[in-house]
Simulated assay, not measured.
Amino acid sequence: MRCQAHPSIYRISAAADMLDLHPRTLRNYEKAGLVTPSRKGKWRYYSADDIAWIRCLFSMIHGGGITIASIGKLLHYAPCWEVADCALEKRRQCPVYQRRGKDLR
């Protein structure tokens, strides 16, 4: 759901270790639609952008008291490029942004 500038190279166990989270937490975020790791076969792969996004999610959920469902609703109304204030050049490379542009035509 986010613009990615880095390749997806971290398997779920490595991403969970980097974030000091249980892999189940990452699966829960995925199930809620908050993060979309790349898939290669049955394996999930996370990028450095995903890791940064998950850190942000975790701080909102556990530090800010925002529920997972609330974050999902907010992202439905305010796309990530508006929340993260992505530069236009970065947005143009984002598949979600490109897809949304086609939907509006």
Rank of each mutant, 00 (worst) to 15 (best):
I51K: 08
L74W: 14
A69W: 06
S47R: 05
A14V: 13
V35N: 06
H76E: 15
R55K: 14
S38T: 12
V83I: 15
G65Y: 00
H76P: 00
L34K: 09
R44N: 14
L19Y: 01
I68V: 15
R27D: 03
T36N: 10
G63D: 00
M18F: 11
D85N: 07
R55C: 06
D49V: 06
I54C: 03
R39G: 06
L57R: 02
L34R: 05
G65F: 00
C86D: 15
A78K: 06
A87M: 05
A5N: 07
D85P: 00
A78Y: 09
V83N: 05
G33T: 11
S38W: 08
S70V: 04
L19C: 02
A52P: 04
P23C: 02
L57Q: 04
L21H: 09
A87R: 12
H6G: 01
L88W: 12
A69V: 14
D20Q: 14
E82N: 13
P37T: 15
K73G: 07
A84G: 01
W53Q: 09
K40V: 12
T25V: 12
F58I: 00
A14F: 06
A78H: 13
I68N: 04
S8H: 13
Y45S: 03
G72R: 15
I12S: 07
R27N: 06
K42T: 08
R11C: 01
C56D: 10
Y46G: 02
L26D: 07
G41V: 04
Y45W: 13
R39N: 06
E82W: 04
Y45M: 11
A5F: 08
L88N: 09
C86F: 14
L34V: 13
W53V: 03
L57E: 04
S59Q: 08
L88F: 08
V83T: 11
K40W: 04
R55V: 00
W43T: 13
E30P: 05
P37W: 10
W53D: 09
G63W: 00
I66S: 04
L21W: 06
R55Y: 00
K73A: 15
L19E: 05
P79M: 03
Y29N: 07
R44W: 02
D17L: 09
A78F: 13
A5C: 09
P79W: 09
C56R: 05
L19A: 04
L57A: 01
K31H: 10
A14C: 02
L26G: 06
C80I: 11
D85M: 05
S38Q: 12
I51L: 14
A69P: 02
R11V: 01
P37V: 08
K73R: 12
W43N: 14
R44L: 13
N28P: 00
P37S: 13
S8W: 01
P79Q: 11
W43D: 07
V83C: 10
I66A: 10
I66T: 11
S8F: 07
R27A: 05
E82I: 06
L26R: 03
S59V: 02
A78N: 06
R44V: 02
C80R: 12
I51H: 03
R44S: 13
